[in-house]
Every structure is written in structure tokens, then in C-alpha cells.
Design a protein around this nucleic acid. Structure first.
Length: 428
RNA sequence: GGAGGCGUCGCCUAGUCCGGUCUAUGGCGCCCGCCUGCUAAGCGGGUUUGGGGCUACAACCCCAUCGAGGGUUCAAAUCCCUCCGCCUCCGCCA
């Protein structure tokens, strides 16, 4: 949720922010009206309530007939207070709905426009030239089958489309990636976390995933629980309703969790392989810090993402995501997109967002600044999303015979294995 | 899943049976001041959070806040209901 004071004091700035995302500014006027109505309702209720409290004290002191007379008078007052209180509750709800419908105000630096209006910030590494090497690259589906690493057929049999089993070196690769990510994070001072992947509505809503993104979220039937699409959700809610010691900031966590996504509205996209799946595992960085520090921290998160991709020896580019593609919570977002040889294009492997105060206002996460409480900033960044990392590794480092070279940094995590070699199919 | 106990403004705690004197007690911690070669002790004061009014975003006034939400009542920390969490025991289980 955005700062209500910004909405009141500078609504034009919020209107402009809506336009930058390609959204209507109607919500701004709705929210302003709701704010006025709410404050009027508060004033009306509190005035009567104060009267009632004062009258109640007289009742307590009075005796006999005098008391009976006072009682009759005060009963009417009580009824009115009750009426004003429920009117107030309605006005609060309307205000809450209105303010929460407004996405975070995008950073000035974020490009205007939608999904295709991103700006490329840099290219790192060069895509491999398979033509020059004299062989046609296999896609990760074929490589996964040759290596006995990815079993899509049985994934579909057991769980349906967009599911898979990682087997043999595939399973080893996941554990290696997770361990390498966790080691890097720990070395950088992060606290390692294994986070729950089922959360209550508060956590989901607080992180902004029950808005436009709600269609993509799995809900547990008969329970008030959701499956998270990222451990950003449990990690943001981790410190909800807390006032964090300013000296403890930044609080840096690296959380492992499975991630579940319905992928509603992506029918026909990435139907092959494990690029787009309903479930994958991920190591996510999550940081609580001050708003002032958040911009520099965002750059650091990007730095750690790049460090990880560099260790995997991948070619990638970094993009500055356009305002319209930021989602509800983010103020700015950088995606790292790795070159996928058989697709001939860059695909998102990691992503880091600065959500400034947007999530912390919803989740009541504050710190103390000069004796006053102030919302903290929350940031998140992918260290590694297993499935896409595997796709990029297999396709990028494959060799003509179907084997795959293991990046040097990853070798220690695979027991020193330097090459993944084809083994044929499992179980015939 | 069953039985019982508990949940008070950083921590501990009084209050709950019997509704109004609770503007929530006391201690610890912390902050400010006094005193003081220094420190400690002592003395005095302050110390939940959110919101509204008025404003300089101060001071001040007001409202809410005793796990959460309802209810009863003129009036609820206190009585009733539902839910949540923690603890103990039983059952089940990785």
C-alpha cells in the first residue's frame, strides 16, 4: 500500500504514476473520496463516543432516581454510538479497498510502458555460436532425457502437464544449485531459511498476490491457506506486526522453498520442457532495510544474482523492467535473462524487486527512526530458480555427443563431476 | 482428533471469581534530569501501538488498543460465544 500522505498531498503524482503503468487514474479519485468519508466518519463516531464515556461516569456516581433518569438518557446515546461505529467500519473498509488497489509508485528511473518497453542495462558474456562449433544444439528436453535428468512423461502421468521428475543427475543438479546458492548467501552474511510454502491469506494479500495476480495462485480447498508462488511471501510475512530494531537492519535472508504457480493465461506458452511449470524450487534472497538504503541494497541484490549467474558461466543480459510490468508491489525491478540457445533468445532466470514500503505497510513491519516508527523497505531477489537454471546450464554447456560440461564453480557441489554423460532412459 | 491450562502497553507481573474507584498495578530494562572526583548507588520524571482533530509532521485534546472477532450492558481486561496461538496429557504420525 502506498503512503496515504502522498495520496492526499500530491495526488497528481499518483495519477502520473498510474499513467506510467498504463493504468486508469480513477482509483486515485475513489481513494481520495474514501479518505474524506472515512475521516468524517471517525470524527462523528469519536465525538459521540466521548460524550458517552463522560455520561457513563456520571451514571456510575449517581444513585436511586437520579441514576434511573441518567440511564434513560444515555441509552439513546449508546444506540447512536453503535450506529456511527458500524458506519465507520464500512467507511474504513471502503478506504482500505481503495488504497490497496493502487500499485506502488514506480521509480523515476523505471521505463514507462508495458512488458515490451524494458530497457537493456547490460549484456554479460557471449551466447555460444553452435554453428561455428559445427553442431546443432539439443534442447533441454532432449538433453534431460539423454542424461536421465528430467522425466517429463512420468511427470505428466503422475501430476499432469507442466510437471516433471528430476532424476539422477537432475536431482543432483538441484541439490548442487541449492547448496551453491546457500553457500554464496551465507558468505554474504545472509541467514539461511527453509520457509513454509503454505500461508494464510494475510501473507498472500500483504505481499500483493491477491490482487491482479490472484488467478495465478493455488488455494487449498476447505482451508484458509494458499500455496506460495515464491518464498518472498512467507519471508515478507515473517516479520509482520513487528517493530524491528534499527541497529539490526539490514536483515538479509536466503530462503529455500517450493514455488507453485497456476500459470493461468499462459496456455500454449512454453508447453515443452521445464521452462514454465506449476511447481519448482527456488532460493530467494529477501531483505528488510530502510527506505533510504533500499536503492543501494537493490543494486547489491542484482550484484549477487549476477555473481551466481557468472559462476554458472552463462551469457545473460540485465533489463530494467517497465512500470506496467512491475506487478503490484515493486517500485523497480531488474530481471536477469539468460541466453537459451535452442530458443535463440534471452529468458528470465532471476529477478529482483525493490518494494519500498508497499508490503511493509500492509504487513505492519516498522523500525524506529529518530524515536518515531517508520515502515521498512522490503526487497527480494532470486538467487536461483532451479528449473530455469537447469535449462540454461544444460543447453549452454552441452557438447556434440550430448554430454554437458559442468561449470567449474558447480563441480564441488557435484562431487567433483566435470561432465554429465548420457546414460539412456531409466527403467527401459 | 480428544481433555485441561494459559494469553495484560520491551521482559516479568497485579487485576478477571464479585463489571463503574483501571486514566491498567508493581518490578526489571531503557531514556531524561538532579546529585556526584569518575562510575555505581540514591532521588525525581518519562517509557504500548494505531488513528483523528488542531497544527510547524511540535505542544495539546480526543478515540481505539489487555491474543483476534462478535455479543450482553448505560458501562467490559473483567460476563457470554466463536476463532487463533502457546503449554501439559492422550490418540495418531514423518
Amino acid at each position: 500500500m502506498i503512503d496515504p500522505r502522498l495520496l492526499r498531498d500530491d495526488p497528481d503524482r499518483v495519477r502520473a504514476a498510474q499513467a506510467k503503468r498504463g493504468l486508469s487514474a480513477d482509483v486515485v479519485d475513489t481513494a481520495l473520496a474514501a479518505d474524506r468519508a472515512r475521516r468524517d466518519a471517525i470524527a462523528a463516531f469519536e465525538a459521540r463516543r466521548a460524550e458517552q464515556k463522560a455520561a457513563g461516569k456520571d451514571v456510575a456516581k449517581a444513585q436511586g432516581e437520579e441514576k434511573q433518569a441518567l440511564l434513560a438518557k444515555v441509552k439513546d446515546l449508546a444506540a447512536e454510538v453503535k450506529r456511527l461505529e458500524s458506519a465507520l467500519a464500512e467507511a474504513e473498509q471502503a478506504w482500505d479497498d481503495a488504497i490497496k488497489a493502487i500499485p506502488n509508485v514506480a521509480a523515476d528511473e523505471a521505463p514507462a510502458g508495458g512488458e515490451d518497453d524494458f530497457v537493456v542495462l547490460e549484456h554479460v558474456g557471449k551466447p555460444r555460436d553452435f554453428e561455428a562449433e559445427g553442431f546443432a544444439p539439443r534442447d533441454h528436453v532432449e538433453l534431460g532425457r539423454l542424461l536421465g535428468a528430467i522425466d517429463l512423461e512420468r511427470g505428466a502421468k503422475v501430476s499432469g502437464s507442466r510437471f516433471y521428475f528430476l532424476t539422477g543427475v537432475g536431482a543432483q543438479l538441484e541439490l548442487a544449485l541449492v547448496n551453491m546458492a546457500m553457500d554464496q548467501a551465507r558468505a554474504a552474511g545472509f541467514t539461511q531459511v527453509i520457509a513454509p510454502s503454505l500461508v494464510k491469506p494475510r501473507a498472500m494479500d500483504g505481499t500483493g498476490f491477491l490482487g491482479q495476480a490472484a488467478d495465478d495462485v493455488y488455494r487449498i480447498e476447505g482451508e484458509d491457506l494458499y500455496l506460495v508462488g515464491t518464498s518472498e511471501v512467507p519471508m515478507a510475512a515473517y516479520h509482520s506486526d513487528e517493530i524491528l530494531d534499527a541497529a539490526s537492519l539490514p536483515l538479509r535472508y536466503a530462503a529455500f522453498s517450493p514455488c507453485f504457480r497456476k500459470e493461468a493465461g499462459s496456455h500454449g506458452k512454453d508447453t515443452k520442457g521445464i521452462i514454465r511449470v506449476h511447481w519448482f524450487d527456488k532460493v530467494e534472497m529477501f531483505v528488510y532495510t530502510t527506505v533510504e538504503e533500499s536503492y543501494a541494497e537493490h543494486e547489491r541484490l542484482l550484484g549477487w544474482e549476477k555473481e551466481f549467474l557468472d559462476k554458472l558461466e552463462l551469457a545473460y543480459r540485465v533489463i530494467d523492467v517497465a512500470a506496467g510490468d512491475l506487478g503490484l508491489s515493486a517500485q523497480r525491478k531488474f530481471d536477469c535473462e539468460a541466453w537459451i540457445p535452442t530458443q535463440g533468445r534471452y529468458r528470465e532466470l532471476t529477478s529482483t524487486s525493490n518494494c519500498t514500503e508497499f508490503q511493509s505497510r500492509r504487513l505492519d513491519i516498522r523500525t524506529r527512526v529518530d524515536g518515531q516508527t517508520a515502515p521498512v523497505a522490503t526487497l527480494n531477489g532470486t538467487l536461483t530458480a532451479i528449473t530455469r537454471a537447469i535449462v540454461a546450464i544444460l543447453e549452454t554447456h552441452q557438447q556434440a555427443d550430448g554430454s554437458v560440461r559442468v561449470p567449474k564453480a558447480l563441480q564441488p557441489y557435484l562431487g567433483g563431476l566435470e561432465v554429465l554423460t548420457p546414460i539412456g532412459s531409466i527403467g527401459g
